[in-house]
Design a protein around this nucleic acid. Structure first.
Length: 450
RNA sequence: UCCUCGGUAGCUCAGCGGUAGAGUAGGUGGCUGUUAACCACUUGGCCGUAGGUUCGAAUCCUACCCGGGGAGCCA
């Protein structure tokens, strides 16, 4: 018995192989029976011809339920009539486990009921679109690790249980830690600042938690973030890294995961366009462009565009909302690096621009096609005195930051880094606006299971 | 928390005061090249929950429950 996988059938033409998988679909045509088998690596049509087979087995296969696990033995044939170009001339089928009737997920391309699909996420991930999406996630994650490994960043993961709010801004999940209060991490950044002083260039890569009651297509309560941090680096170094990093990840998906992009129906020309350099624009200039575009959309845009424009900013000062990011995405067709936001709207550890102290040395990378904010980062405050003042100004408990302040006491250097949201990145690359489909088992405001 | 849309067959939906419908899945039969196969017949329902209006409610009203989309906040 020669085992094979569906993705490698071209190596077995005219040979007898055994495939192990699940029945995805079934079509009968008189003495012919077509079984569509999936094995995790792909789908293939297996052709059963009644006169050539055991009558009892043929009769059983004609009624075999969807998702029954089966082991198919037959000869690999090149055949243009078959999707994928290959099919199996079936000699024998072993039914490993016959599935129950009423498999909850229908094979249809109609508008799905997302609630039902998410309730059955444990089964839905078998279907083609979610399956391909998770293959893209796999490629993105592998590309991230390879990118940082090749550039000699050291993976030093940060803790998930933390004693206090890192930035004091967002709502955290509170857990009981042996009669002490602990919180699930919302960012590994402060710890990265410590590890990069030990290793030079580090990154952490793990889950992150936000207890915000956000109910939008861009939010999860549990999501994955990759956060690099570099000692002896500034804002420009971070922007260079963002460019190198995002273009590398996209390129990897194009070269090594194109099959899955095709299944998703992704317009790859949009991704092929993601090459260095990316536009770099200051917050102040970006605001001016948004306000200008807003007026133009209100005057002569479509109804959809008018609706977006209405929500966009009318004067600089605030952080960007969803509409502002969408408009940035309309103006530029590449990920766009918006730098130097007002210091007042950014976290306490952001360093002020010496040239214009009311702005921070920070950057957000806003993805095209409505992907939203993919990256947030910047240069960190490295002066002990300034940091103490910022902690006081933000009314944060100084005691909790004692170890963090030590980093400025013992060999402080300019340093910078960023955080990238993995699900938003995967969603953008897949052309799927909803982050909930880019993680195997999404955790959402109203969803904790399966 | 706010705005908005929705809950009818296993699944996707129509019906919007007068006997509960279609497609698909399931069942029975037919077909040697199907691609979401097709053709014929067929099983399948506490119309989200609780009140109310009415001779009569899936349909109208009220409350509640559950969810989707969006806002704020953020990656």
């Amino acid at each position: 018995m020669q085992l094979a996988s569906i993705s490698k059938l071209e190596n077995f033409v005219d040979q007898e192989v055994t495939l192990r998988g699940w029945l995805y679909n079934r079509r009968g045509k008189g003495k012919l029976l077509f079984l569509i088998l999936r094995d995790g690596t792909g789908h293939v049509q297996c052709v059963c011809f009644r006169p050539d087979m055991d009558p009892e087995l043929f009769a059983r296969l004609e009624k075999l339920t969807y998702e029954s696990s089966i082991q198919v033995t037959g000869v690999v044939k090149k055949d243009e009539r078959s999707q994928g170009g290959f099919e199996i001339g079936v000699k024998d089928v072993k039914v490993v486990s016959e599935a129950e009737e009423n498999y909850p997920i229908a094979i249809q391309e109609d508008t799905p009921n997302i609630d039902h699909l998410l309730d059955n996420r444990h089964l839905w991930i078998r279907s083609k679109i979610p399956h391909a999406t998770l293959r893209i996630r796999n490629e993105v994650v592998q590309a991230i690790r390879d990118f940082f490994y090749e550039r000699e960043f050291i993976l030093v993961d940060s803790p998930i249980f933390t004693p206090n709010a890192c930035e004091g801004t967002t709502n955290l999940f509170e857990v009981d830690y042996f009669d002490e209060k602990a919180y699930l991490t919302q960012s590994g950044q402060l710890y990265n600042e410590a590890t990069c002083m030990a290793h030079g260039k580090t990154y952490c890569f793990g889950p992150t938690f936000r207890a915000e009651k956000s109910k939008t297509r861009r939010h999860l309560t549990e999501f994955w973030m990759v956060e690099p941090e570099m000692a002896y680096a500034g804002l420009d170094d971070v922007m260079d890294l963002c460019e190198d990093f995002l273009s590398y990840v996209v390129e990897r998906c194009l070269t090594r995961a194109r099959k899955w992009l095709d299944i998703l129906g992704r317009d790859v020309t949009k991704l092929e366009n993601v090459t260095k350099p990316f536009p770099r624009i200051s917050y102040a200039d970006a605001c001016a462009k948004i306000i200008e575009k807003r007026a133009q959309l209100l005057a002569s845009g479509s109804d959809d565009e008018k609706r977006i424009a209405k929500d966009a900013m009318t004067e600089p000062g605030d952080d960007f909302g969803a509409a502002d990011e969408t408009i940035i995405g309309m103006i530029f067709d590449k990920p766009t690096m918006v730098h130097r936001y007002p210091k007042s709207i950014k976290a306490f550890y952001m360093k002020a621009d010496p040239q214009q102290p009311e702005y921070a040395l920070c950057v957000d990378v806003i993805g095209p096609e409505g992907a939203g904010e993919l990256i947030g980062g910047g240069e960190r405050e490295d002066s002990l005195d300034n940091l103490l003042a910022a902690i006081k100004h933000h009314k944060l408990p100084e005691e909790a930051f004692k170890w963090y302040l030590d980093l400025r006491r013992y060999g402080s250097v300019p340093h910078a880094g960023f955080g990238l949201g993995v699900e938003r990145t995967v969603g953008w690359i897949c052309g799927n606006p909803h982050v909930r489909e880019t993680i195997p088992f999404p955790r959402l405001l109203h969803r904790l299971s399966p």
